[in-house]
Design a protein around this nucleic acid. Structure first.
Lengths: 339, 339
DNA sequence: TTGTAAGCGTTATCAT
DNA sequence: ATGATAACGCTTACAA
């Protein structure tokens, strides 16, 4: 069942090299011969041996998706499913394969990092939502491993795909302002994630643009998890906001629960806008008004950017691609605009 | 940065073979030499070249997770995140790598199947929730590719890990019966998935055990998606059930929505029990009473079974492992037991 | 246009 | 216990 180039060559009455050329679509093969060889290949169902090929070409046709431990607890989030679905789809199209790694821990020498990234088994990697200070990034940079981040990174040299978090958060906040709110609270994302910072920034920008003073007691830090949302809501209550911008849908679920426990009506007493537009956004009552980000698109785009990086001469790899996708405000019930 | 065995050998003043033996923990190496070689390896940060190794050993240390197209639309489900999280964790421990493939379409010769499974790039595969008649399974069997299914399969020869769907569904239904319900509807999973059939079977068993006649008008087929839940609920209403067993949490969300639209109170007018216990189960109002299945555990178990299959002599590979994990009923608000 | 032959970096067999 | 040496299956100059 497992044939080799050699065998195909024998069957076709040509040399190994010719078969190799046929397989790799090299120009210099007589059309007749080419067709004949293909015929045999199809007939016996020959498939080139991946490892042998990699050994010769120094390419594996595999890209990695790395999800650092720091966000591993978020992995169960639908966000990652959606993202991975975009990545795999793009990989299929491009005939690349995808290796998935959850990186756990600082991992010394001989750890996962070396094993995966220094064994030449990956052509490049996509790093999904690392924290700003994740030690992984400097290492990848130092080792000249082609990679793309999902979510921007302060370091100039890091290529990334991202959504317009600042703009999205601004939109969300302005929406609340337009609805007449002045005391708008925010449950932010983690401060060590760029998206967390950016969404906070967008919130501030919106307030400033409308000359609403920024009140620190209306700003509490969350962790993108339900628990963080609940805790955040409770702390926020002390500052008596009339509306809250929650930096993720999952946290918004937590906020909703906390408010319900307190007997506070949403959107009657407090209006809510969040971020992501995951499927759960419409599963809860009231349905969440939220900033939609194209998560699947982000995944496939990450693949595109990485692959374009890969078949670019080394000197051009130095210019880092930076792509930012727009977001969209989806108005539903939780903001109170529907009434 | 990328060293070779040869270099290490030179630096250590030994032969390639000795270094190879050291790396692979072969017995016949003088302890002194062994330590010395390790020292150098660590010092220069040597990492064996994966492809070269595979070429020589016919092993890649990579296992695949295949999710067939038939369920690709379900991929965004938190189920897969949870499952993958279990798989990756187990892989990390076992120092295996994970390749993720979404199989789309029937895919003729030269398609994804051949490319991935006949290029010797995978040691084995985990097939996640295929339909009963998925053509992938016979092919894997025919090609003698080591694999494990998640969810049982009618073919005797197929090794699998599964949860006790029948038992879980029986528990759920009996719970409703115990609460006094007699007209219990069911929104099933797809008939072409084993879990769909099994959960229906459990439902029937419970009714029979309590001498409640099975009423076909109380049985409607769903698709494990929210839309299927909504449609199912609406069709079920004609048969005026006082309770519904929904074969998945996601569908239960749909059922909840449909009932809400009709002004029907849950659990007041109709009680609900579902299956999965995904995080959303507690995000909705009322929180879902549901059958918990250990999804992450299922993933890591699939890895264990597959790996044990891999280092088993071929003749022993013929005996198919079949493992079934228990489920647990989690009582919350939707069944009305809390009141 | 085609074939020959030298790698690619390991492991494994066989001597020693 | 250690070292040559031949695979492993492919790509790619280089020759023809």
């Amino acid at each position: 069942m497992a044939h080799t180039l050699e065998e195909i060559a024998r069957l076709a009455g040509v040399s190994r090299s010719t078969v190799s050329r046929v397989i790799n679509d090299h120009p210099n093969v007589k059309p007749q011969v080419r067709e004949h060889v293909w015929q045999i290949i199809r007939q016996v169902g020959y498939q080139p041996h991946a490892a042998a090929r990699s050994l010769a070409t120094h390419r594996t046709q595999i890209i990695g998706v790395i999800i650092p431990e720091s966000v591993t607890t978020l992995f169960a989030d639908p966000f990652f499913s959606l993202f991975l679905s975009g990545v795999t789809t793009a990989c299929n199209e491009k005939r690349y394969n995808l290796m998935l790694s959850l990186f756990n821990g600082p991992d010394g020498p001989g750890g996962m990092y070396e094993r995966i990234l220094h064994s030449a088994s990956l052509d490049g990697v996509i790093v999904a939502s690392a924290t700003v200070d994740d030690p992984l990034i400097p290492r990848l940079l130092r080792d000249c491993i082609p990679f793309v981040m999902v979510g921007r990174h302060p370091d100039e040299r890091v290529p990334y795909v991202d959504v317009d978090n600042v703009g999205g958060a601004r939109m969300a906040t302005e929406h609340l302002i337009r609805l007449g709110h002045q005391r708008i609270g925010i449950v932010t994302g983690p401060r060590n994630m760029m998206s967390g910072r950016d969404r906070l920034e967008g919130y501030k920008e919106a307030l400033q643009a409308h000359r609403i003073p920024i009140d620190e007691s209306l700003i509490v830090e969350g962790d993108y998890r339900e628990g963080g949302g609940m805790a955040g809501a409770r702390r926020l209550l002390a500052a008596s906001p009339t509306a809250i911008f929650v930096a993720s849908d999952v946290m918004a679920i937590g906020v909703l629960k906390a408010l319900r426990q307190e007997g506070i009506d949403v959107p009657g007493d407090i209006a809510l806008v969040s971020f992501d537009d995951l499927p759960i956004a419409t599963a809860v009552e009231p349905a969440l008004t939220t900033v939609r980000q194209p998560i699947g698109r982000l995944g496939s785009l990450a693949v595109d950017v990485l692959l374009s990086l890969l078949d670019r001469p080394p000197q051009l790899q130095a210019v880092a691609d930076k792509i930012v996708l727009p977001t969209e405000l989806i108005v539903r019930a939780s903001c109170g605009a529907m009434r």
